[in-house]
Amino acid sequence: MDDVFDITLTVNGRRVSRRVPVRQHLTDFLREELGLTSCHVGCEHGVCGACTVRVDGAATRGCLTLAVQADGAVVETLEGLSESGEIVDLQAAFVDRNALQCGYCTPGMLITAAEMLDAKQPMSRADIRTFLSGNYCRCTGYQAIVDAVETTLTARLAEQEPSA
């Protein structure tokens, strides 16, 4: 009885076509239709950031995006980012610094942090904290996350410096 709509999009590098209820949000679509369960449901009103995925290159709230809005889009989830190895340094820093406890916020946190790192700009700890403030973490108290992001940023900036 739901109104439905046919969509075709690219998810983690693969072309996907599905008929979806128009009221289904992107997070439910990724989880229920594609089994991409790294995309988490936390609040379903765009506050907590647990559902953050990448849509056309930008960190996006999956719960505030309808699946039909992603028609034609390029969507990446943490499964895709892990497969490509794009943030392997950030992931290692999270483990090393114990920047996660329950891990529920982690996929969204990593995708937000990845967007920040992609800007390749030096950032203070306060800048990092501000940038991450759309992603709630209830376990760590944030410091270890800031440390892990800062470490990764410092290493990436050092890497791109032209060798003397």
Binding site: T37, S38, T77, V95, N98, G103
Partner: peptide
């Protein structure tokens, strides 16, 4: 010691009840 589970969770392989 680093947590084995953390290595799994940072790659999106967590398995929570709804999963």
């Amino acid at each position: 010691e680093r947590r084995t589970k953390a290595k799994r969770l940072v790659t999106g392989r967590g398995r929570y009840t709804d999963d």
